[in-house]
Amino acid sequence: MNILKWVGPVGLLAALVIGDQIRINRPAHKYRLTMEVETPDGVKSASNVVSVHPYRGYQPSGKVTSRGDAVVLDLGGGRNLAALMLHDDKGSADFDGANFVAMRAYQAAGRKIAFRDVSSQTGAVPVTGELMPVLASFTDPRDASTARRLQPDDLSPLGTGTRLRSVTVEAVPNGFWPIDFGGGLGEPVTRGVTAKLPWATSEGEAARALAAIGFPNTPEPATALARK
């Protein structure tokens, strides 16, 4: 009987702790980044869902973070194109751009929205100009040092007739995080970059890749490819 009297309080405490963790970790919004490339064999596309998380902890400061993987598109014939979770800020590596690309793309499309409004947006909008993530290709996907940077308006190193058709972003439902397994439960964050780039989560190998495309000595380089 003495044990039973604690069941209620302990259960309530557990519910409060779980609820608070959900409040802290639940995404503010999710977005799908889609890349389409025209090739001699037709249009090829790939997309990933990323979740964006504002800081809701108890420390006096914190920052927005995101979770998800870079988009890696297999073009066939050993060719590939990756949209990294990395932006170029006047020659410096900008990792925060991936956190705000959806908001900024909707703003660039003429929607006067704030960060808190992204989750209510519908439809895909273009990602262009400074909003474009860094694009890279890997001569050998198993070797990080074979990375080379490509420009959105020139994919000729990938072959004649290959060009970037579009990069778009679209807000998708948050769903019932953390049980957002798809369908009515919400879009899950996309994983699987290591199936295409086996070294992607290795800080050392990711550093080699970023150095090869012009961003040497970058802190936490693996976050350009995968964010937990």
Rank of each mutant, 00 (worst) to 15 (best):
R104Q: 14
A15K: 01
L13C: 08
S145A: 15
F138E: 09
L75P: 02
P216Q: 11
T128P: 02
T218L: 02
E38R: 13
P152W: 07
S145Q: 03
R148A: 14
D69Q: 08
L73W: 07
T218N: 04
A211V: 02
Q107E: 14
T34S: 13
V49R: 09
T39N: 03
A200T: 13
L155A: 08
H87S: 05
A226G: 09
A14Y: 01
T146P: 06
A102D: 06
D153I: 06
S119A: 15
R104S: 08
S51K: 10
M35I: 13
G11E: 03
V50R: 11
A108L: 11
P9M: 04
K112N: 14
R111P: 00
A200Y: 12
L164M: 03
D69H: 11
H87A: 04
P40S: 03
Q121C: 13
F138T: 10
A109K: 09
A200K: 10
L197E: 11
Q121M: 15
K5N: 10
A226P: 00
R191A: 14
A82N: 12
G77K: 05
Q107R: 15
S47K: 01
E38N: 13
G110V: 10
R142K: 15
V101E: 01
H87C: 01
N99P: 01
R56V: 12
G123M: 13
V134L: 08
G159P: 01
G175P: 06
P221S: 11
L73T: 04
N80M: 11
P198G: 12
S51Y: 05
P198S: 11
L131T: 09
A124C: 09
P126V: 10
G62C: 01
L81Y: 03
G175K: 07
A109L: 10
P152F: 08
N25C: 00
I3L: 13
A98P: 00
G77T: 03
S119N: 02
G91A: 06
G62T: 01
R148M: 14
G183R: 08
V118M: 04
R165E: 12
L33E: 03
R191I: 04
L13E: 00
T122I: 04
A211H: 09
P216H: 11
I18D: 00
T122D: 14
S45E: 14
T168L: 02
K44P: 00
A105S: 15
M132L: 14
V118T: 04
F215W: 03
L75M: 03
R67H: 15
G8T: 11
P173Q: 06
L86Q: 05
R191P: 01
F115S: 02
D41F: 02
V189W: 07
P216C: 11
V7F: 04
G161W: 04
A102K: 01
G192S: 10
R149T: 04
V193W: 05
Y106F: 12
